[in-house]
Write a protein that binds this DNA or RNA. Structure first.
Length: 859
RNA sequence: GCCGAAGUGGCGGAAUUGGUAGACGCGCACGUUUGAGGGGCGUGUGGCGAAAGUCGUGUGGGUUCGAUUCCCACCUUCGGCACCA
């Protein structure tokens, strides 16, 4: 027997226990069914789930449950991105072991996820900090090393003095550490790199295949990879046999190159600098090194440079070009040297003005049809001319369109062996070494005799030692653990040392989606047949903040794993949904600063601590620092998981930001109560015996089937908000129907109520299962069949046709659904309102849109 | 500066392909139920107007019988990249 009142707490625990007991969410390969792999980005076990997670996983769960009800074999796993610095920071601050801290967080957060009723196959749960996971990462690393895809090099790296670690370029935001916002410094270290640049071309080209990704993300990745087509040109040093090679995308301006700019770190500097310029050059290099990298990276610094005393020769004009060092030339990009064409490059222009270097125009704007584009005169220019035009002062190439000249000049240089066409990428190799404890150990041993030796397969995993001192100083604590760091060389047996760095945690998340297909495999990362069955991920869901980093690395890893023979796909995620942020207004007390929502009194304008008037700020992403957060545990306790889920899906379309609203949550709760009451009051009194079908019943049946159609279509487009609104309308429809049929016992009502409950199941699974059982059914709706609408049932007998006169709405007429255009036209013209507006005017034209509208055009 | 997205009631948001702008929800108002409160149920709710009407989807143009939707120019907001040669 059903309870009178909806009690989400008891309903939800009861069903969660039942689902778990029955193993409802377990899946395995089934060749008879079409597979569907839906994946949400796994969380870092920071301690507690936040509303962003709730939204993310609710979207994924709605998709998973819907697809399952549509008959797909659905893989829907969850795990933990469990390596990372917060665990180590906790170790330093609270003297807990990172492993203990992490696993306790996982236990708590797993329970939270279960309380939301998410349909994960928990048997596939993985934590990346477990040796049974990272041992395969180490194996993959070694295979990459053997193929030259992982290599070591000495390099300047981004060093965060606060985190005491190296950061990848992608982890430096505007010169600041992405995690702690401290200024990043430069430090030279020997580091491991993944050669992602050898996949640059493919990573770029395959973006075109990602038709299921938001264009925005594709554009960001394209931008990040940054392909530039141009050529490399060699410039002879005057009075020497040395040459300096530059990269340029503008070979068409070669005749206008009047000086050369080198990066201060350029390796040739020492060799070419003249004695008298030596001290000045040295001073300049020191200055640039010390300069705030944040500013240098941001292009905020004014152009500055120094003359080296050396000259090089322009290969086409024969001019002596002074060689400068310039603070805006980056050693990492291209060749670290730039031919300066001040007339046609804004940076070179500014530099030339500052140091009084010659400016030579070699491209003239095309004089327009009206002849009003003035010709450029070098002395009068106030900025560089960077647009298209015709070549001048360029010898044999004069008169060519500059786009054509690019090719012609490149061809010419190639024929003379002083240059070649070349492609440059902005993308750099991925530095993965981290001087930290809580990460995957790099499985490499250094032997004085044998050099760099990978750890043999049979010795994997290289496990993290447990007993380690965490001081937070001086980089990785692993180097101080002699039992770990000192080993015998696997090749010669002599004394050797381990690499004591660990891998960037982005490595773990670059392949976890593949491990889910076979998470317990102890023979390899995963079974290839299982991977072929499940992969690629059909629908990936997560925050847009990973648009570049995680998604690019995962694409890279997929291609590497394919080339290592583990996978037969090249792209991991077929469709991507980037969900918006969860936002809420901020509140500030003049005395206590940011306030949690519960620190404001009921009236909403006073601080609970001091009674002072609070200030309501703008709506921002929920964050602990601004305290504009809602605790999911509390929310679920008060309203239940179904309400939390329903609101998350209803308040905004998934890809847009969601503004949290307490009243909106109450609205969702009210709706579920309305559904409950509907079933309680009208669910039991139905009988299968059909009275003769009245018009009202037919109408109810019609809206039921229209709703099935609408919800189904909306689900396939992930328009959950409108799907839910359609359900609300149907519930409203049932209420008005029953208001007029107090003693209803008919099929239409039964069908409407059953449909509502089934269609509600992906959003609010607990209450749906409970009500389904209340109607006398057995089992969970997860195994129920998604309803199909009856095309005959949705046909209207009569339809309303809108009548316009000159495009303005003037009336509505009701006609039989099968009325011909001529009939509709006649009825429309005879409408009283329409006649008022057409009286005495000439009817020029009548537009009839079948089943929709009539527009009468009068003169 | 470059790339991308978005501007619709008091608010969140609807409106597959150009065809009734504002579905659904929140809020508000009124009514009803209740001893009261809460809750429920019902009705109304873009602006102006007594009404007929009229104006309304960031701004200004255009195409069309008809534009939130298509085209051009611009404004604002948000996000990403940013001295990449």
């Amino acid at each position: 027997m059903m309870e009178v009142r909806y009690n989400p707490g008891s309903v939800e625990t009861r069903w969660q226990e039942k689902w778990e007991k029955e193993g409802l969410f377990k899946v395995s390969e089934d060749s008879a069914k079409e597979k569907y792999y839906v994946l949400e980005m796994f969380p870092y076990p920071s301690g507690k789930i936040h509303m962003g997670h709730v939204r993310n996983y609710t979207i994924g769960d709605a998709v998973a449950r819907y697809k399952r009800m549509r008959g797909f074999n659905v893989l829907h796993p969850m795990g933990w991105d469990a390596f990372g610095m917060p665990a180590e920071n906790a170790a330093i601050q609270h003297k807990t072991h990172p492993a203990k801290w992490t696993y306790e967080n996982i236990d708590y957060m797993r329970a939270q996820l279960k309380s939301i009723g998410l349909s994960y196959d928990w048997d596939r749960e993985l934590a990346t900090c477990g040796p049974e996971y990272y041992r395969w990462e180490q194996k993959i690393f070694i295979e990459m090393f053997r193929k030259g895809l992982a290599y070591k090099k000495n390099s300047f790296v981004n060093w965060c003095p606060s985190c005491q670690t190296v950061l990848a370029n992608e982890q430096v935001e505007a010169g600041l550490c992405w995690r702690c916002d401290n200024t990043v410094e430069q430090k030279e270290l020997s580091q491991w790199f993944f050669r992602i640049t050898s996949y640059a071309e493919e990573l770029l080209a395959d973006l075109d295949k990602l038709t299921g990704w938001p264009e925005k993300v594709v554009a960001m990745q394209r931008n990040w990879i940054g392909k530039s087509i141009g050529c490399e040109i060699d410039f002879k040093i005057d009075g020497s046999d040395k040459t300096i090679r530059v990269f340029t995308t503008r070979p068409d301006t070669l005749f206008g190159a009047t000086f050369m700019s080198l990066a201060p770190e350029h390796p040739m500097v020492e060799q070419i600098v003249t004695d008298d310029q030596g001290p000045e050059v040295k001073e300049f290099i020191e200055k640039v090194k010390k300069a705030d990298r944040a500013q240098r990276m941001e292009g905020q610094l004014p152009k500055e440079g120094v003359f080296t005393g050396a000259y090089c020769i322009n290969p086409v004009t024969g001019w002596k070009m002074p060689v400068y060092l310039a603070n805006f030339v980056l050693v990492e990009y291209g060749t670290g040297a730039v031919m300066a064409v001040p007339a046609h490059d804004q940076r070179d222009f500014e530099f030339a003005k500052k140091y009084d270097l010659p400016i030579k125009v070699v491209i003239q704007p095309v004089v327009g049809a009206y002849g009003n584009t003035p010709l450029l005169v070098a002395e009068e220019m106030t900025e560089a001319y960077v647009d298209a035009g015709v070549l001048v002062n360029s010898g044999d190439f004069n008169g060519l369109q500059n786009e054509d000249a690019k090719l012609k000049i490149a061809d010419y240089l190639e024929s003379k062996c002083i240059g070649k066409k070349s492609i440059n990428f902005r993308l750099r190799d991925w530095g993965i070494s981290r001087q930290r404890y809580w990460g995957t150990p790099i499985p490499i041993i250094y032997c004085d005799k044998c050099g760099v030796v990978p750890v043999p397969d049979k010795e994997l995993p290289v496990a993290l030692p447990h007993d380690v001192k965490f001081t937070g100083e001086g980089g990785s604590p692993l180097k101080d653990v002699s039992s770990f760091a000192n080993v015998k060389c696997p090749d010669c047996g002599g004394d050797a040392r381990r690499d004591t760095d660990t891998m960037d945690t982005f490595v773990e998340s670059s392949w976890y989606f593949a491990r889910y297909v076979d998470p317990k495999n102890d023979k390899g990362p995963f079974n290839k047949e299982k991977a072929s069955y499940w992969l690629p991920v059909d629908q990936y869901i997560g925050g847009v903040e990973h648009a570049i980093l995680h998604l690019l690395y995962s694409r890279f890893f997929t291609k590497v794993l394919r080339d290592l023979g583990y996978l037969n796909i090249g792209e991991p995620f077929k469709n991507l949904l980037t969900q918006g942020m969860v936002c809420k207004e901020t509140v500030k007390c003049p005395e206590h600063g940011w306030l949690f929502p519960e620190e404001v009194d009921v009236s909403g304008d006073k601080c609970r601590h001091c009674g002072k008037k609070v200030e309501w700020g703008r709506i921002e992403k929920m964050s602990k620092s601004k305290k504009n957060v809602i605790d999911p545990d509390h929310l679920i306790k008060v309203y239940g998981a179904d309400t939390a889920r329903l609101f998350s899906l209803f308040a905004a379309p998934p890809e847009r930001d969601l503004e949290w609203s307490e009243q909106g949550v109450e609205g969702a709760y009210r709706f579920l109560n309305r559904v409950w009451r509907m079933v309680y009051e009208f669910g039991s009194q139905q009988s299968a015996v059909s009275s003769q079908q009245s018009e009202k019943e037919k109408a109810l049946k019609r809206i039921t089937h229209k709703t099935i159609k609408k919800v189904t279509e909306d689900m396939s487009r992930f328009h959950f908000n409108t799907a839910i609104s359609a359900l609300m309308e149907l519930v409203n429809g049932v209420y008005s129907y029953t208001a007029e049929h107090k003693e209803s016992k008919d099929k239409a009502l039964k069908e409407a109520i059953e449909s509502i409950i089934i269609l509600l199941a992906p959003f609010a699974p607990h209450i749906a299962d409970e009500l389904w059982e209340g109607l006398g059914n057995k089992g969970s709706l997860l195994n129920a069949k998604w309803p199909e609408y009856d095309p005959a049932a949705i046909l209207d007998d009569e339809i309303v046709i809108v009548v316009q006169v000159n495009g303005k709405l003037r009336g509505k007429v009701t006609v039989p659904a099968d009325a011909t255009d001529d009939t509709v036209k006649a009825v429309a013209l005879a409408d009283e309102k329409v006649m008022e507006h057409t009286a005495g005017k000439e009817i020029k034209k009548v537009v009839v849109v079948p089943k929709k509208l009539v527009n009468v055009v009068v003169g």
